[in-house]
């Protein structure tokens, strides 16, 4: 093939894919900054200029955000989302660190079975898990409470952080800590002084990925969180009822939900592939 033609085709293909990827995001953000009437202003079929206006040149308005946060209950939902995410990370990552260190350094019989257990929890379909959790949470009296939701997020965040952190720790040579023992420091001090600083970026990535999974969750919050611990994803979905759909607020809620995660995703870009493949790939 003519190399110039090949290059042109390549650029067209990549551009099309790029457009396919970003247009929904632009549409989401643009719609959330429009007054309610403007969202439904679709140009007539075939009017490409009108479409560009719709995506980029529109009258900005904060109506949707005002309706959600000042007149609506979304501040409470935002608080619930932040609390549920934060607390589940606060439980999962420290406990994950301890367990990961033990797994990485200890000569533990049956370690392989433990790994399988840990990773299998990451494969369980949430709908199947939800049935027994629902019954269990009810008997613990934590159904539809914030602690219940936090514990529910721990079911996937704790195994995930154990698995990921162990991978990071395995890459730190043991000799470094042995030097610390010679200095007379105990195991815990060796861990906090030597190992932790070395895997700190990995711990940061783990914190962000655990936050991502809890923050983006819908099903657990819907079933186990219920009324008392309504998070933003559940709040957004409630804006759609049988009689009306508040598209503007749904889009605005979506924007609120995705912006922090995109920023955090950029922060840990280097670890993203490693994290999302559970350490199987080095990014």
């Amino acid at each position: 093939m003519d190399p110039r033609l090949a290059k042109t085709l390549k650029i067209i293909a990549v551009t099309l894919f790029l457009l396919w990827t970003v247009i929904p995001i632009i549409f989401l953000v643009a719609s959330s900054f429009k007054a309610t009437g403007d969202i439904f202003d679709l140009p007539p079929v075939g009017d490409w200029v009108g479409m560009l206006k719709l995506l980029f040149f529109f009258k900005a308005s904060f109506t949707q955000f005002r309706n959600m946060f000042i007149e609506g209950p979304f501040f409470t939902y935002l608080g619930n989302s932040l609390l549920a995410t934060g607390l589940s990370v606060l439980i999962s990552v420290p406990l994950g660190l301890l367990a990961a260190y033990a797994l990485s350094r200890g000569r533990i019989p049956g370690k392989k079975h433990f790994y399988f257990w840990v990773i299998s929890t990451r494969m369980a379909p949430p709908v199947a898990v939800m049935v027994p959790l629902y019954v269990l949470w009810r008997s613990f009296h934590i159904l539809q409470t914030l602690p219940g939701l936090v514990l529910a997020y721990t079911t996937f965040n704790l195994p995930f952080s154990i698995w990921l952190l162990r991978g990071f720790m395995d890459s730190i040579p043991k000799e470094l800590e042995e030097a610390a023992y010679v200095d007379g420091r105990g195991r815990f001090r060796a861990f906090t002084d030597i190992v932790f600083p070395l895997i700190a970026p990995g711990v940061g990535a783990t914190v962000i990925l655990c936050s991502l999974m809890a923050w983006n969750d819908y099903l657990f919050a819907l079933i186990l969180g219920g009324r008392a611990a309504k998070t933003i994803p559940v709040g957004i979905s409630e804006l759609e009822s049988a009689t009306s759909i508040l598209w503007g607020q749904i889009m605005a809620g979506g924007t609120v939900l995705i912006i922090p995660m995109i920023i955090l995703g950029l922060v840990i870009k280097k670890f993203l592939v490693t994290g999302l493949t559970m350490g199987a790939m080095r990014g």
């Binding site: 990827t21 819908y218 994803p233």
Partner: peptide, 12 residues
């Protein structure tokens, strides 16, 4: 750019 869609909650 490609990391953006992955960060979007499935609900959204």
């Amino acid at each position: 750019v490609f990391l953006i869609p992955m960060m979007v909650a499935p609900v959204v």
